[in-house]
């Protein structure tokens, strides 16, 4: 309510120089005093706003910046978070491992293995840059906030603790009703449709071939339809499974 009024007031100020900006005074003497009493009395009859915290847990909004959780399966030790951190409060140690070739005769691959991931919450200023910058969705805000310690050194939390906090991260908010489809889902759906179309085509060709050999029309049609449906379902399931696997376990 106050925002739309402000530009208007600023507009008027250069014109009016006399200090007549005070609110109009009531004619009845003492009405201001009565108003003050009424305000306090009305407040007394309402529920107080006190949050009885240790007795009652606060209802925090889901995006509360309580603590940073680490989804270490997603971490590739790219070090972006540690480098972007303005406080330099993220400590990462890692080593390289060679992975034997996937297929015989292939090349050996090297892989980063996380040894230590720690955040010093006595330095952290909860800016969230590490979470923004992580390209692999390994860092998340959790609303958990009760991790006070009596010694400042104990505020450096290691990967196991950070992984535990991952369980308190709420599910991402649902998309808006008219939102664009997420890229992963769109790609998976396209692949599934393509596969289904192919299989349907193959089934139809097979049916045509069967018709040509003199089989019953109805039977062939039914068979073709069933085959197409099954193929489409299977393809869609596979694609969805792949997407889920990618987002969850692709290290």
């Amino acid at each position: 309510m106050a925002e739309p009024q402000q530009p208007q007031q600023q507009h008027q100020q250069p014109q009016q120089h006399q200090p007549s900006q005070q609110p109009a005074r009531s004619r009845i003497p003492g009405s201001g005093l009565a108003k003050g009493l009424a305000v306090t009395l009305r407040t007394m009859t309402r529920r107080s706003v006190t949050a009885q915290y240790p007795d009652a847990q606060p209802e925090l909004p889901p995006r509360t910046r309580g603590v940073i959780g680490l989804f270490e399966e997603n971490c590739t030790v790219c070090m972006l978070c540690a480098r972007e951190c303005p406080d330099w409060c993220i400590y990462i140690d890692s080593h390289k491992e060679t992975v034997p070739p996937a297929a015989p005769g292939g090349r050996e691959r090297s892989r980063n293995v996380l040894d230590r991931f720690a955040i010093d919450f006595s330095l952290c200023m909860y800016c969230g840059i590490c979470i923004e910058v992580c390209p692999f969705d390994a860092l998340f805000w959790s609303p958990e906030f009760e991790y006070a310690e009596t010694d400042i050194h104990e505020l450096t939390h290691e990967r196991d603790k950070l992984r535990e906090w991952m369980w308190t991260v709420p599910a991402p908010p649902a998309l808006d009703p008219a939102a664009e489809e997420p890229k992963e889902v769109a790609a998976a759906r396209k692949a599934a449709e393509k596969l289904a179309a192919q299989e349907a085509k193959a089934a139809a060709e097979a049916a045509e071939a069967a018709e040509a050999t003199g089989a019953a029309d109805n039977a062939a049609d039914n068979a073709a339809d069933n085959a197409a449906d099954n193929a489409a379902d299977n393809a869609a399931d596979n694609a969805a499974g792949n997407v889920a696997g990618n987002t969850e376990g692709d290290a």
């Binding site: 009395l41 107080s48 006190t50």
Partner: peptide, 13 residues
């Protein structure tokens, strides 16, 4: 207590 509730608080609990 009265002052607390008039200020939207609970007072000593």
């Amino acid at each position: 207590k009265v002052m607390a509730h008039m200020q939207g608080r609970l007072g000593p609990m």
